[in-house]
Write a protein that binds this DNA or RNA. Structure first.
Lengths: 202, 202
DNA sequence: TATGTTATTGACCGATCGGTAATAAAGTCA
DNA sequence: TGACTTTATTACCGATCGGTCAATAACATA
């Protein structure tokens, strides 16, 4: 056993609660008071655990991107075909972005990109890494869809991936106020179709 | 002539300077001090002119959406064909979103949507109105592209417009850190192509 | 029980936040 | 010139911001 006074609460559940606040309100409009209220911890404990507000946000964002990517990857592996895996991957992303009790919270990565891209290279790099991982996943699934499912892509692989990423990022935004999850899923499916994936067969 | 002490500066140029600050930093992380520094006005004058910070932002956002829509509409009318008009409309949007001395500022409407959608019905409604106007413009151009340019859309008109809007919103985000203006324009053009517009003929 | 170690707590900090009000300055009009 | 009207400017407000620190509490170990 480690020495010293034991923790009352699991840092992971604290991080999870802070994460939800940041997803809801973004970084700037979230105050330490908000985080204290949401986590139940006292301010000093939060600072001891995560350094400062920026550190807490960064940790929460990493948690979000890691877990979201893992969910997407896992979802892609559940499918019988690469094409279906691709569709499930996109739907997984949309489902996460649509979370929220009233109105969708959107994708925290997209939200953070909008808020931080111009002023925080650290966050920007972190988001670029995740972006590249997802692009790689999409390209791998697309390649397999060509080889295994007879997909006849009308655009090069790289362009196909860029177009899918653009659509997904856009849906993450419009999900916040313009469209429903069902509409977003329909858009994603149609996008796969127009790109040449054999999505009708599913 | 109107009575009273005359204004030193034109409120429109003040609004323009405030607009740029809001585009750069968003709402929350922009302080009144920032606005004072950027406009050259003193704090009291800003409050007299625009009420409060939120009012100033709302006015700036309306200015942005109005002007951007007018630019897009004007651009669409410059073209010889509806298809070319559509492409010019999209490129106009991307060009505006890519403005900024170092890195692109993105689309202020998209940025505001991310920051305000969950907490400010007034801003949300304002953005939804603009969204609908742009959707209407896109649908009108698409319809004309079918009738006049022989476009063979592979998706219904409404879905075509939704897909275009999603791509554009996504590009406005990714433009901030992930891609260049040239890449974004290429994505938009490819998107038009896969949707069935006769864009290769241009 | 005494000691070392870590976690929790509440009081406190200077800085900055958005916003206000009183006053000074610069014009028009009689 | 002097009254009137509007803008510009300064000083100031309470509240909240993110962050710190010393004191205390709760454990393991000796």
């Amino acid at each position: 056993m480690v020495m010293g006074r034991p923790r009352k609460v699991d840092p992971d559940v604290v991080l999870e609660k802070a994460l939800m606040v940041f997803r809801e309100k973004g970084y700037d409009s979230t105050s330490m008071s908000d985080l204290v209220a949401a986590t139940g911890l006292h301010k000093g404990s939060l600072y001891q655990l995560f350094g400062d507000k920026h550190g807490l946000f960064k940790t929460a964002l990493q948690q979000y991107t890691r877990r979201t990517y893992e969910s997407m990857f896992a979802e892609s592996r559940k499918a019988a075909t690469a094409t279906e895996g691709l569709q499930r991957t996109l739907n997984c992303m949309l489902t996460i972005a649509s979370e929220g009790s009233s109105g969708s919270l959107g994708c925290m990565a997209v939200n953070a990109m909008v808020e931080f891209a111009e002023r925080d290279p650290e966050i920007r790099d972190l988001l670029q890494e995740t972006d590249q991982k997802i692009v790689a996943l999409i390209m791998e699934l697309s390649q397999r869809a060509i080889e295994e499912d007879g997909a006849e892509l009308v655009q090069p692989l790289e362009m196909t991936a860029m177009m899918l990423m653009s659509v997904m990022a856009g849906l993450a935004v419009t999900l916040k106020a313009m469209i429903t999850l069902e509409q977003a899923q329909q858009v994603a499916k149609s996008q796969l179709a127009v790109l040449g994936f054999k999505v009708d067969a599913l």
